[in-house]
Computed example of a mutant assay.
Amino acid sequence: MHHPQVGDSLDELDTPSMIVDLTLMEENIDRLMQRFREKKIHVRPHLKTVKSPELARRLLAAGAVGGCVAKVSEAEVMAQEGIDDLLITTEIVGKPKLSRLVTLIQHHPRIKVVIDSFIGAQELNTALHEAQLEIDVLIDLNVGQNRCGVLPGKEALTLAHYCSKLPHLHLVGVQGYEGHLQHIHSPEERTQRCHQAMRLLTETAAQLRFEGFPIEVVTTGGTGTAEICADYGGITEVQPGSFIFMDTDYRNALGPTYANALTILSTVISRPTPTRAVIDAGLKSLSIDSGMPEPKGLPGIEYQPGGDEHGILTWTKIADPAQAHLEVGDRIELIPSHIDTTVNLHDHYYAYRDGMLEAIWPVAARGKVQ
């Protein structure tokens, strides 16, 4: 069996495979970093998108100050590879998770976490007390997403005062993620609602400072809103992740700001009727939680999953079905609708330039959901 190697042609890759156009990816990274360098805002990319220490290193080399991860298990994978200036953006609750965190902090003291409850803060403090360790924490604020987070203002202040009595926690900042605004198509509405969220975040940071808390980090922003956030006074860092590869959901909201650099390469395995082709990429290769992936460069042709392993292409919108020149054995690329959940289905990135494989990166944090 031939294992793909650097130097191979893309034509030699088996399908389905997750392929990355390095030229486009590098342009995406440069474009984003340049924009925030000009705004003097730190970029702490969310690594739950790439799940790869190799790609994290590329982002750091381009100017990122560190990384975000969603889970302790992702932090373990990154820290093992020497990437340990990390913010874990999800609350850490329960003895098994806390004991893993404590082990991690022993070797990687720069890791920071978020809290949004008395119980969560108390249990974190207890776990650290037993190990005689300390940790930097951020208060997670609900700025409108209605997921995790305390309410801005009084609730946040109460939690901060509670936190100040816990000797193993050092409050250094606030996090407020406006995930509900990432994919709003109207730039005016997205900007206006983002400003509302930023006002809640920055006003709470100011109130906390007024009461004597050393709030250094005010962190927020995804690919869809990071630039709007960065222009709002009082924000110190942003957490975009998807910009590196993009997907159709973000492209439809943002337009051509960043290029679709990642696609799933697939093969036509059946051509049963004049208006249907079947490919070898189904639900186990492409996520559909944000809609259907898009066949690249094939206008009028639509994809839908045909089960775990099959994808069905139809072209009802093409006036003359015979124009759909898809034959058994043809290879097509699909642009994912949601990058994070699609990446998590694959073991490797096959990165290419000019049709030749230049790098193969394992998706090292694949399946790290704990």
Rank of each mutant, 00 (worst) to 15 (best):
E134D: 13
E74R: 09
E76Y: 01
L159F: 03
I115D: 09
Q80E: 13
V93E: 14
S99Q: 15
S164Y: 06
K95Q: 12
K71F: 09
V114F: 11
H168F: 07
H170E: 00
N146E: 13
D85P: 07
D84G: 08
V150E: 00
L104V: 13
G120L: 14
L157R: 12
A75T: 03
E91K: 14
H168V: 05
I139R: 07
A121K: 04
Y162R: 05
A131W: 08
H107L: 08
C148P: 00
E76L: 10
Q132Y: 04
D116F: 14
L98S: 10
Q80L: 08
H108I: 09
D84Q: 05
T90D: 11
V72S: 00
L104P: 11
K97P: 08
E123V: 13
T103E: 15
L128C: 11
L133M: 05
C148R: 13
I88C: 12
K97Y: 13
S73F: 01
V102K: 07
T103S: 14
I115A: 06
R147C: 02
H161L: 08
L124A: 09
I92G: 04
D116M: 14
Q145W: 11
T158I: 07
V143Q: 04
A160C: 04
P96D: 11
G153R: 02
M78I: 12
C148E: 12
K95L: 14
G82E: 03
G153W: 02
L166K: 02
L151N: 07
H170G: 02
V172S: 04
E130Y: 12
T90F: 14
L138R: 05
A79S: 13
T126R: 14
D136Q: 11
E134M: 11
A156Y: 00
G120Y: 14
V113R: 09
V172N: 01
D84W: 02
V114C: 12
E130F: 15
E76H: 06
P167D: 04
C163F: 02
K165Q: 10
E74G: 05
V114A: 08
I135N: 03
L141A: 01
L159N: 01
R110P: 11
V137D: 00
L133T: 09
P152L: 02
E123P: 10
L166N: 01
K97S: 15
R147K: 12
F118W: 15
Y162A: 02
A131V: 10
D136A: 10
V114E: 06
V77T: 10
H129K: 15
H170Q: 07
S73T: 06
K112H: 12
P109M: 13
